[in-house]
Design a protein around this nucleic acid. Sequence first.
DNA 1: TTATATGGTGACGGACGATTCACAGAGCAT
DNA 2: ATGCTCTGTGAATCGTCCGTCACCATATAA
Lengths: 210, 210
Amino acid sequence: MKNTRLSRKEREYLRHRQEILKVALKLFSEKGFHNVSMHEIATSSEFAVGTLYKFFSNKEALYRALMIDVSKAFHSSLMVALTTSGNEPEKIRACVEAKIKVFMENSDSVRLYLAETRAASFNIKAGLDTDIKVRYEEFLEKLARVFESGIKKRLFKSFDPYLLAVALDGIANAFLFQHIEYSNAHTFDADLIVNIFFQQIYKEGETRDE
Amino acid sequence: MKNTRLSRKEREYLRHRQEILKVALKLFSEKGFHNVSMHEIATSSEFAVGTLYKFFSNKEALYRALMIDVSKAFHSSLMVALTTSGNEPEKIRACVEAKIKVFMENSDSVRLYLAETRAASFNIKAGLDTDIKVRYEEFLEKLARVFESGIKKRLFKSFDPYLLAVALDGIANAFLFQHIEYSNAHTFDADLIVNIFFQQIYKEGETRDE
DNA sequence: TTATATGGTGACGGACGATTCACAGAGCAT
DNA sequence: ATGCTCTGTGAATCGTCCGTCACCATATAA
């Protein structure tokens, strides 16, 4: 990351760009793409409308830039977690932990990200699908491969690894949603998720509360 | 349900209303609230724009009516499943089955429903929150109470019942999303979900593939 | 100092889309 | 037949944005 190469002007330019993105993220995440006008973003970021168009060719490009940033950030966090050393259960646990951490720290982004990842082609049409979903798929596949290898080693029972990945991610998302939407009394952490997922819920004989 | 009391006119009126809702559901679920114009709904439903306003006071009211219908339908299906006789595991299984069934049969509605339930205050502001979310909460609570009672009977391990409900629902949603979005090769059914959820994933000794 | 480039501005054009309303025609009662 | 009501119509209105562009102001170069 040698940004030292950049002139003051260039740094200014990037700072401004970041500032716009930051404001836009906040607004979009609160109100959704269609309920935020360029004028509003301009006012909030203390630039003129015209200036926004010096940075982004149009509203959708601005949104896209935002989503791609967010998506890349999330993706790389999760991928790193899955790559850390350790056996399969450890990797998976690290992944859940990473997900919680990143999501907690960026709840604005999360709303947007989830809206795109899940609510699908809803908000914005082309381009993003092909980009964000691909990244998400890649993550699921990688997670699936961890499950697969755990199954081969006979650490896990043999379910379809991809579906295990979907399931685990589903639980994590559900908890995070819950937290973001209601931030209610029910606390949770990576341990809990992993435990619910890995340990049998059924009691088959002996009692084993923690 | 004695609709026999209705005059022909009244029946016509309701039929037309239903027709509009049906078309609107299709369009909204495909393109999202903001990307569907009243004009488009009018054309598709073969009514004039003005006619739509005879049925619904504005675009949002139309959308709201739709969402409330959908939400009520889903809610009642799930609640019924949870009320059927049987012990806790059976109830939960019935619930998952009901969810899959209803969702599969109404994938148009599901997109909308999920967009509201999860992507939250995104698409439409007031009113819906307070209505749909309450219903969703009610469902989660009821599911949680089933878990709770299962825990009391020492059928399940003692996790926070509400979080178990969130987790289970999260897995089911994840699978359904996956199916709706990618309808890929990975098939699943209520059994699989319940198994992943209830049976231990970890192998603690003996092998027990099905 | 003057010329030029560059970041920044914001009023304005044009399009689009929600909503209205004056009106048409069908059915029904008188 | 005439008048009244009620469903249905769609052109016209009105507002709201997106995106443009002629134009500042600052700073750097000449």
